[in-house]
Amino acid sequence: MTEILLFHHAQGQTPGFLAFAEQWRAAGHKVHTPDLYDGATFGTVDEGVAHAESVGFDEIIRRGLATAAGLPGRIVYAGFSLGALPAQSLTQTRPGALGALLLHSGVPTTTFGSPWPAGTPVQFHAMVDDEWAEVDVLQELSREIASAELFLYPGSGHLFADPSSDDYDEPAAELLMRRTLEFLDRLD
Rank of each mutant, 00 (worst) to 15 (best):
13 Q>H: 12
119 G>W: 04
101 L>G: 06
106 G>N: 03
149 E>D: 10
85 L>W: 11
76 V>Q: 00
109 T>N: 10
166 D>M: 14
73 G>Y: 11
20 F>G: 03
68 A>T: 14
111 T>S: 04
45 V>E: 00
79 G>A: 14
19 A>C: 01
121 P>H: 01
17 F>G: 02
69 A>I: 13
53 E>I: 14
69 A>E: 13
97 A>K: 01
113 G>T: 00
66 A>D: 08
120 T>S: 02
28 G>K: 03
134 E>Q: 14
158 H>L: 10
175 L>Y: 11
109 T>Y: 04
97 A>V: 12
28 G>D: 01
74 R>A: 15
153 Y>F: 06
127 M>A: 10
74 R>E: 14
1 M>F: 03
2 T>H: 01
83 G>F: 03
127 M>C: 09
115 P>D: 07
100 A>R: 08
44 T>C: 08
62 R>G: 14
114 S>R: 09
169 D>E: 13
79 G>V: 14
66 A>V: 13
140 E>I: 12
141 L>C: 09
175 L>G: 12
76 V>P: 07
1 M>Y: 01
13 Q>L: 12
168 Y>G: 07
31 V>H: 07
7 F>S: 04
3 E>L: 07
72 P>H: 08
111 T>D: 07
38 D>F: 03
162 D>L: 02
108 P>E: 06
14 T>L: 00
4 I>W: 07
77 Y>A: 13
142 S>F: 05
66 A>H: 10
89 S>M: 15
151 F>P: 05
72 P>Q: 09
16 G>A: 02
84 A>E: 12
106 G>M: 10
124 F>R: 07
144 E>M: 11
59 E>S: 12
124 F>Q: 01
2 T>M: 00
65 L>R: 15
111 T>I: 05
16 G>P: 05
161 A>F: 15
65 L>T: 15
82 L>G: 08
117 P>W: 05
69 A>M: 03
144 E>P: 10
12 G>F: 05
98 L>M: 12
178 R>I: 15
90 L>D: 03
64 G>H: 07
155 G>N: 00
154 P>F: 09
48 G>K: 02
21 A>I: 03
87 A>R: 01
138 L>C: 06
59 E>K: 12
135 V>Y: 00
29 H>Q: 04
110 T>P: 02
45 V>S: 06
168 Y>R: 02
